[in-house]
Amino acid sequence: MKKKQLTVAHLQSRRFGVGMLTPTMIVLLVMTAYPLFFTVYYSFTDYNLLKQLRKPANFIALKNYTDLLKNEYFQQAIWNTVKFTVLAVVFEMLIGFGLALLVHSLTRGQKVMRTLLLLPYLLPTVTVALSWRMMLSPNYGIVNQVLQALHLPVYNWFSDIRTAFGMLVLIDVWQSAPFVFLLLYAALQSVPQSQYEAARIDGANAFKTLFYVTIPNIKNSLALCALLRTIDSFRLFDKVNLLTGGGPANSTATITQYLYNFGISSLNFGFGSAGAVIMTVLVLILSSFYIKRAMG
């Protein structure tokens, strides 16, 4: 009798668990699994949004993948994306961490500083891009006016092959370093004060305290930040599309911009899907490296 009661309770508990999981599973299946499946499926076809109104898409096996990987502009886009990701993540991590340490060390005004430093991250990317475009405008931009007043050389920042890529990195770092700051600032709050006191008693200087107390305590947060920023930087599109369109001479074309120009704009969704799959694989490889390090 007792065993039967236990079985009923167990069944009810399982049913409750399944009931609670079902809505999430449905949302995941509809919003993630279904698009993912079709993206992979279309990547093996010549699916064109308009042409399929006349005739259905054909299965073309790996042609989209071989075309992409052979294409010199796609190769350049991969290189640009990797270069951008490395530079942006390194600078964002360094600046964000520096800011977090600085604000954490303040005895007064932490809240004000925290709010002010977060502002760039709160702005929509379109607003950020357009604001920077105005500031760096060769005609009425404040940056060139200041440089001219100081008798320094001026540039057409987004159209000059020497400066366009650097400007994109700068703008991304400006906008995203506050995100790193916020996460690391929160992590710093959790470092036990007793460890700092022990280090001080042992005569550790600031440098040693940083490397032997602070960083070991927040290493998981550092890895998480780097992971999130890497994934985000790898998907960079809006700033490039708004500010340079991938030019000049493809020097700022990222994978997403390439796919937009040669896949989505042309409505060749099969080709675009193949590129998206390649990009996902690259992000997964990078992410797994971080996750392994952080969890490992």
Partner: peptide, 19 residues
């Protein structure tokens, strides 16, 4: 035409920037 001008524009951009 969309693919046409994208391809041509990309090569013209290379020429203009000395690539």
């Amino acid at each position: 035409w969309t693919e046409f001008f994208t391809t041509l524009g990309t090569e013209m951009d290379n020429i203009i920037n000395g690539v």
